[in-house]
Design a protein around this nucleic acid. Sequence first.
DNA 1: TAACACCATGTAATAATATAACATTTGTAA
DNA 2: TTACAAATGTTATATTATTACATGGTGTTA
Lengths: 132, 132
Amino acid sequence: MEKQHNLSKNQKIIFDLIDKSHEPLKAYSILFNVQKKGINAPLQVYRALDKLVEIGKIHKIESRNAFIACQNSSCQISKATAFSICESCEKVSEINNSKLSKYLSNFVDETGMKYSKYNLEFFGLCKKCKSK
Amino acid sequence: MEKQHNLSKNQKIIFDLIDKSHEPLKAYSILFNVQKKGINAPLQVYRALDKLVEIGKIHKIESRNAFIACQNSSCQISKATAFSICESCEKVSEINNSKLSKYLSNFVDETGMKYSKYNLEFFGLCKKCKSK
DNA sequence: TAACACCATGTAATAATATAACATTTGTAA
DNA sequence: TTACAAATGTTATATTATTACATGGTGTTA
């Protein structure tokens, strides 16, 4: 059973904003959008983001410095993330492919190092942009 | 045959520094280190870094905002990069595993999107840090 | 050689992203 | 009901990256 995380006030405000968004949100864009709700400082945003990432409710898209809500209801894969990124329209989707995640989770390299976490970002053109 | 890129003065200075380093270097740390060589401004560093990334001589470690020299003599895999990162000592190595790169290069997801590029970062503890 | 394209350089200013430090408050569990 | 962990609030500052504009070198070609 998944541990239930009761989000705090700021965490909830920020998660809801990210969850409603159809694109990755950047920290200062989030800040701008929640100022009417009483969140005034960058640090308040970053603290909530850190926590949300930690518990797997959101993921950071490292190549874009932006955040999206986890698309896996269970949110159990925050240590094994994969995304597809369209280099034209910047649409980002979380990839949920069990073969891929199994392959990567079990990956062991020559040094014998076993990994506890990975992040994979694929780049290309999405359907829409390809047909333009 | 690989295209030969003749590095410009600034590009060479900055590549040499990164290449000699045993750890990923950050842009402003690079700037600090090359000021004696007449490179004074962040933009000079970023321009060289951009070019070096583009031609595959170095790679950016996205999760660390840092740069390392490509470990593959051919430097042909700048569109297919994988790294191992020790979360304790921050040692970063480029993974050169043909099975992995084949698997990922041929990866096609449900949407039929074919990717032209990927970047993968594995996290864990390196041998040394594990045995501490 | 003049005109041009192309790439690289130099410099100043500023934008965008992220953290440090410190004080206070809230939730929760012993 | 104390005591601890987590979250909040606020100011300042550190770090990372880009915009804008001017200059310089090199090769092509008309």
